[in-house]
Design a binder for these strands. Sequence first.
DNA 1: TTGTATGCGTTATCAA
DNA 2: TTGATAACGCATACAA
Lengths: 339, 339
Amino acid sequence: MKTGKPTINDVARLAEVSKKTVSRVINNSPLLSEKTRERVQAVIEEIGFVPSLQARALALSRNWIIAVIHDNPNAQFLVNVQHGILQELADTEYGLMVQPVDRTSANLHENIRAFLERHRPYGLVLLPPISEDDGVAAICEEFGCNYIRMGSVKLGPAEHTISSNDREAVREAVSYLISKGHTRIGLIEGPKGFTSPRERRAGFEEALTAARLDLDPDLVRTGHYTFESGVEAGQSLVDLPQPPTAIFASNDEMAIGAIIAARRSGMLIPEDLSVVGFDDTPLSSHVWPTLTTVRWPIVDMASMAARKLIHPEDKQAMKKWLLRSELIERDSVIPPRKF
Amino acid sequence: MKTGKPTINDVARLAEVSKKTVSRVINNSPLLSEKTRERVQAVIEEIGFVPSLQARALALSRNWIIAVIHDNPNAQFLVNVQHGILQELADTEYGLMVQPVDRTSANLHENIRAFLERHRPYGLVLLPPISEDDGVAAICEEFGCNYIRMGSVKLGPAEHTISSNDREAVREAVSYLISKGHTRIGLIEGPKGFTSPRERRAGFEEALTAARLDLDPDLVRTGHYTFESGVEAGQSLVDLPQPPTAIFASNDEMAIGAIIAARRSGMLIPEDLSVVGFDDTPLSSHVWPTLTTVRWPIVDMASMAARKLIHPEDKQAMKKWLLRSELIERDSVIPPRKF
DNA sequence: TTGTATGCGTTATCAA
DNA sequence: TTGATAACGCATACAA
């Protein structure tokens, strides 16, 4: 089972120092004479010594692993998060683990606890909606495992949070619809009980209020962030005796579902119905007409999360907890016909 | 740094045996009296002993990790693979790592080598196109790291391969188009130099040959498995003086791109143009009309890959290397107008 | 069938 | 500023 690779003992012998001194060198300890450090460093490079992560893991009871914990079925979202984290992890020794969990399970906390005990990751990136669970954050604290909660609102102290400004972004998007002349605007919101749908709805209402428009409860539908639920909600809205002239959907999938439903009912998009989504998934520029939407900076959020986990000394990064979403204007919004 | 958790020593002391005996129990060694095993097992359960993966990793120089190595930008594909592997890993101690690589990099092999040295995963799942690189497989052999190559054709011996029957599946799909009366069938193939596009093209040609139809080179376009390339290729096909009455695209994204292009040119789908894709991504049932396509059993393939990695004693699984694709009939295919 | 002694490659303690 | 020695928690060779 010997790997044949040089170990800290080889370095110590060749540099004629103790292994503890070598350990100090590879850990950048300040208690070290420059001369010794240089001699040891020279040997390290000469024989190509690389510290064993397994041995360090045993000694420190913590692995060189960043883990993503999630209960989120959206493929593009997940891959974007992974991509963002991996960008930051490139050229480091850290690796990325992915651990899905079931938020509806009675064993949720127990399962996360078991994962932490088993793999002892260096840090955790908690994705919504799991990130909104204070119990999970408490478990991380208990284990002394670093963690970042990702969400649409500030979840706990800045050093443990990375967030987008969903409410404000949606307010701008809906204000944009209003500025185009729309006054009957439908809302397809996300599932109840989660933060991001609530924030996005709040932004929707704020935009109406700012324009002195009333929220018509008949124009609000609840979906599950899925294409199918978007179709259903959209169908229900366009079937109204007096359908809306525009719809804001809480994510792109539902927006595209609504477009399909409207078209099935013989409507032209955007002539008969303007639609705005949220996310800016690749899909949104692939549909026809291309979808006006809010760009959710999820890749950057994930990068920033990883940066905070592995560079706690970067005080500037530790303080930053907000990345802004912005409206992307494409072809799915025009003024209403009667305007 | 003590974790406070019970260790193998605690078990040994309480059960009044040596730690080696405990080690035998947790490793299911046959050299053990039933009485001893039961007594030790009882203590293990009583004090809730869980072996430390870090300590085992150091002793065995191998981690309880299955890693996916890939250079594949497709989100749905990646998440499906991860999902399949995680299905098999659930209720085991194994975790999942994800490691993207750059197949065009001169350091590709060096990078994979570094990853193996660092994290010492128990097994690797190699995704196409990386899986087609014999050098990568050789590196795995060299490190004694188990691996499965996933692809559209048998890559090496059965115990290291899991494959789909792309060629046969495409042959059936195109034969289906022919059976509907289509004789001018366009092909949007995937990028040159990879196996899956080549196999799918071979299936296309076999179907034509079987029906005594000639392959018209003017009806063949090459894309990059992206939506945009599908739009471009589709546009180029429908702009022909005598456009095809049907198109087979080597994946769903390009198929949907072709549909968009055709519609932009005023064609009705499927009335003026039938389209068949490949993959059966969720997207394919979300577009309008819903897309007739070939279901690629990627989740099952990934599950099977993980099973082979962590259950080498399952001889039946080790022998199985083929999972079949099947045609999913939806709404994007009808007979041609003139038929 | 069981135990002893040692190895795996690092970090931590505490003394020098 | 350095080093000897002991963890860390398990597995293995070899002996009994």
